[in-house]
Design a protein around this nucleic acid. Structure first.
Lengths: 205, 205
DNA sequence: TAAAAACTAAACTGCTCAGTTTAAAACTAT
DNA sequence: ATAGTTTTAAACTGAGCAGTTTAGTTTTTA
């Protein structure tokens, strides 16, 4: 009775297909991926694949939708509410920066952006599970800290946006355009520390 | 004797083709654009088009390369060196934010990112004419201001990256994913002002 | 005005690829 | 084991599209 999914699935190889599709779509994007390739990578015949999914579009949607959801899980504000604000922010900044430049986050970002016009719904799903979700979590913590008087913030939304953007400094664009793809912990830590430094200079109580 | 371009061009309709190709590529991206469509929009026959450009790839490269160059021109630091630092930064922030969310900048950004793997050279051209160029210009001004003692910055590169990122707050991602596409002057001004406020809190002398 | 050069429409080639079909084989359950 | 279901390989259809060819028309040039 696991038919909670929108797509009909009666066979036992659905997960294989989803896994294969995930691999290929995340590697090649929507246009770049061929259904034959997906079938091959999945270890499944094309006919079987098409018995699960009506067409390539829906398969793509299902896969990317799932990745967007997964992203939601990965954006877990690792803020320790018991720690002093500055340390908590430092941890959050490091976690956020790491995530933003990670292979996974970069892939989802690029694919969703590339297919934005073809799949506006996905674009929105991405936005809500990703940036918006992260923003909302951050706002909660900032509001709490502001109410404790540990931070003085007039426009909390703006502060949260700024915090996030500060965590992207340099690395994010370089990762996106493939100038570099792997960053050392030191690089990430530096960006995170500078982000907190600047943020606290403005909003520290 | 205007054969300074890498591609052979003997006819009189080259510019028409480039203009048409620009329109179509910027609208539909590389895969999405069809050569027949480009020919039609250019008001030129396909055969003529192919007499100028060896293939679709090179036409695309030429067009996007030109757009990247044009971007370089549009990133003109509108910083008035005679103005007080804070005002100069304010003007720069407003100009930068406006540019970053403009249709033009957003299009180039998205197309270059989407075709990143297919055209790594373009990706690099984009990066150098866009982000890197903007960064370098900003660094110059920040360094000058720092040397005058109007700002106190230890890591000028990082400060410049942060300034740029601060100018993206909220609007850039929303524009990229099509959540919104037009922003009022007030919205832009707000982001710019807040960016300067935060920047000066950290780096103001 | 005549030869040369540039341009045109339209048909054509060849390839890729999404989606279907078919007939057979492998699995599952009773 | 046998009936019913799922899966398979492989061939096929049909569409889209890059790039070419052809045979003829327009523009340039001298």
């Amino acid at each position: 009775m696991n038919t909670h999914s929108p797509i009909a699935r009666k066979g036992r190889k659905v997960d294989q297909v989803l896994a294969g599709a995930r691999e290929v779509f995340m590697r090649d994007g929507f246009e770049g991926a061929s259904v034959d390739e997906i079938a091959k990578v999945s270890g499944v015949s094309k006919a079987t694949l098409y018995s699960y999914f009506t067409d390539k579009r829906r398969l793509f949607q299902e896969v990317i939708q799932a990745e967007c959801d997964r992203m939601s899980g990965e954006i877990e504000a690792r803020i320790d509410p018991t720690a002093p604000t500055r340390e908590a922010l430092q941890t959050a900044a490091y976690g956020l920066t790491s995530f933003l430049v990670s292979r996974f986050a970069q892939r989802v970002f690029r694919i969703c952006l590339a297919e934005r016009d073809r799949f506006p719904e996905l674009s929105q799903t991405y936005f809500e599970n990703g940036p918006k979700n992260g923003h909302d979590q951050l706002v909660l913590h900032l509001r709490a800290a502001a109410e404790c008087g540990e931070l003085k913030i007039d426009n909390i939304d703006m502060a949260a946006y700024q915090f996030t953007e500060l965590c992207k400094a340099d690395l994010f664009v370089r990762a996106a355009f493939g100038v570099e793809s792997d960053f050392s912990q030191e690089e990430i830590a530096l960006v995170a520390e500078e982000a907190v430094e600047t943020f606290m200079a403005r909003y520290g109580a």
